[in-house]
Design a protein around this nucleic acid. Sequence first.
RNA 1: UGGGGUAUCGCCAAGCGGUAAGGCACGGGACUUUGACUCCCGCAUUCGUAGGUUCAAAUCCUGCUACCCCAG
Length: 360
Amino acid sequence: MVGMSGGVDSSVAALLLKRQGYDVIGVFMKNWDEQDENGTCTAADDWQDVQEVCTLIDIPYYAVNFEKEYQERVFHYFLEEYKRGRTPNPDVLCNREIKFKAFLEYALKLGASKIATGHFVRTEVQNGKPLLLKGVDSAKDQSYFLYMLKEAQLERAVFPVGGMTKAEVRALAKEAGLPTFQKKDSTGVCFIGERNFRRFLQNYLPMCPGEMQTQEHVKVGEHIGLAYYTLGQRRGLGIGGRGDGRSWFVVEKDLKRNVLVVSQGEDSPQLYSRFVRASQATWIAQNAPACEGERFRATAKFRYRQQDVPVTVSLRGDEILLEADEPQRAVTPGQSVVLYQGEVCLGGGIAEETANVPFA
RNA sequence: UGGGGUAUCGCCAAGCGGUAAGGCACGGGACUUUGACUCCCGCAUUCGUAGGUUCAAAUCCUGCUACCCCAG
């Protein structure tokens, strides 16, 4: 059973499985019901594309609705994190809770043996256990979004396009005559889509205006609510012409004083840190990669599409303490820290705090 | 209400008689299954205002207005 979004990747995923002789069923998940600012409902168009693709490659198709699950398990958390002044990544949860849980259960219940998606990742079985590997196309690798999955989930998952490049996927779609072959890559929060983010959040979060200040507590502007900003952010501050003329960036959210602390120049030392504490450690393998107190080397991504950076990691309870070889810019609480060793994604956690000295 | 100074894009700021630099902000686009960062493009027919001199003025002259400083 293939989770189909209406995009090229999942279309090709279904196509490949069909060609390999599998009994393929296409399923479209509709988890968010709302029109965007332009009054168009992209979900309807996407569903239309799914139907066309499935008809073309001759497989049955259905639509399922996990709106309720999405609300409860993903969106609720998403808003709570924002209210705490953090910057959550809803899509990592969406994968753990919806695509590889609700959807997986649905598929198994209907008698499917596996689920497939159009993610750019690979799996490999080692000693009878599945490993999650980066996608071959490093520019499109999506393992960052799947680090919360477990062996049990991966055992049931197939990623037909993980070994291909995006260009190959599109070429195949074109050759097969799939109507989605030149559809623009989708972006924005999964299932919700591209939005004017600030306006979107305003529907759910209270505005709580306050001052923007420099680190010396000099007022330089006003903000509409700390939740609407993230560390390292430049645009949207509306401060121009002050100081030395360089751009201003968010370096801290002071919830206590409701002050957005900003600093001039993109390389403010305050934005950099070498030590990060992450919570909710989750490992794909059944066993953690090390014992408590033991240190090991790995590479880490603090944000999607960032270059992996070398780090030294140690575990403490369900926390990950890591020390990057080089200072990292704008590591932000709420964002996922994903660990790798070579091509293998080990798992990761949620950034809680950063520092320039080791955590006690 | 004596003297001096300054008035150029939302902000900062070049320009000094030859037909409005640049930076920030902002807008648009690219990139992107989070939010950001980044990159590209755009952004004053007009220089506080009214006249004058000149082939030609933001640049010179005069009046007015506003703000600043020093004296009062």
